[in-house]
Amino acid sequence: MTRTVYLNGAWLPETEAKVSVFDRGFLFADAIYEVTAVIGGKLIDYYGHAARLQRSLSELGIACPLSEEALLDVHRDIVLRNHLDEGLIYLQISRGADDRDFAYPVKAEPTLVLFTQAKPVLNNPRSQTGLSIATVPDWRWERRDIKTVQLLYPSMAKMEAIRRGADDAWLVEDGFITEGSAATAHIVKADGTLVTRGLSNALLHGITRASIIDLARGAGMTVEERPFSVEEAQEAAEAFITSATNFATSVIKIDDVVIGDGKPGPIAGKLRRLYSETRLASAI
């Protein structure tokens, strides 16, 4: 089935949705994006993603083409138009199209695109098997807190991990793990303490990360927000990632070192269940 795409106020078949070759998202990666999970036709953690979208736009000085209410309406409408029961909505806003110049154009109109992808989220097979991780150097720019479309290096890192027989990559800077190629990295110590890197410009401020930390604290867990090394991660009782479409998914191997007993951990599983239950209950 051909998907219906939203492009600058128009609903178009995906084969007819076109963006200018002069768009700065294409020429300079001058654009931001968000991904919102959909389960049962409803949006998961939407308001967190909407708030981060506004922050990213503000950091780059790009105006949002739609009001908060209109943007939510578009998200709901694209779910209905594509009969999306489970999957994700991808949103991208670029600064717009103008003749190529490193200086920002003054009057360019932002380009807004949304499309859907159907995929298993709630019952993602990886949640049952766990993930293997390869560590690679973190050679990205220093404003990783802005969710830009500058994703070439994370793609290269993931491909390097796959080449080494792993499922995904964790990025390492100054001996410490920053985050995954497209997810937040977490470990659980032997005493049950959840450790995740504190927020800074070094990593994306994950929406699912924030929800999982709140749920962990609400369940009585101790949470430490601090850097952790590859060695500490390999010696942890559990490791897992969080993201909009992975929720909490266990990591069972890091650089060929088996984590725990080599099976998805009980704490990651508990947090995944808590997240699923609470976010489904509050989905819009």
Score class of each variant (00 low, 15 high):
96 G>F: 12
18 K>Y: 07
222 T>F: 01
133 I>V: 15
237 A>H: 02
101 D>Y: 12
255 D>L: 00
239 A>S: 14
113 V>Q: 12
205 H>L: 12
67 S>F: 06
148 T>M: 01
282 S>Q: 15
224 E>G: 04
271 L>T: 01
238 E>M: 09
235 E>P: 01
70 A>F: 08
155 S>T: 11
124 N>S: 11
253 K>S: 15
240 F>D: 02
28 F>K: 05
100 R>P: 11
260 G>Q: 02
221 M>V: 03
221 M>Q: 04
124 N>G: 08
191 D>R: 03
131 L>P: 01
200 S>D: 13
132 S>H: 06
224 E>P: 03
208 T>P: 05
105 P>D: 05
137 P>K: 01
140 R>V: 03
252 I>H: 00
115 F>C: 12
138 D>V: 10
87 G>Y: 05
35 V>C: 09
30 D>I: 06
77 D>A: 12
260 G>A: 11
108 A>G: 13
141 W>E: 02
111 T>H: 00
256 D>V: 03
77 D>Q: 14
80 L>A: 15
279 R>C: 14
225 E>R: 01
151 L>Y: 07
72 L>R: 09
1 M>W: 13
226 R>S: 11
228 F>T: 05
3 R>T: 15
215 L>Y: 11
132 S>F: 07
85 D>W: 02
218 G>H: 02
97 A>S: 15
16 E>A: 15
125 P>E: 10
4 T>Q: 15
55 R>S: 13
279 R>H: 15
161 A>W: 00
222 T>A: 10
88 L>C: 11
138 D>K: 01
112 L>T: 07
50 A>G: 08
170 W>R: 00
15 T>C: 00
213 I>M: 03
147 K>V: 07
90 Y>P: 10
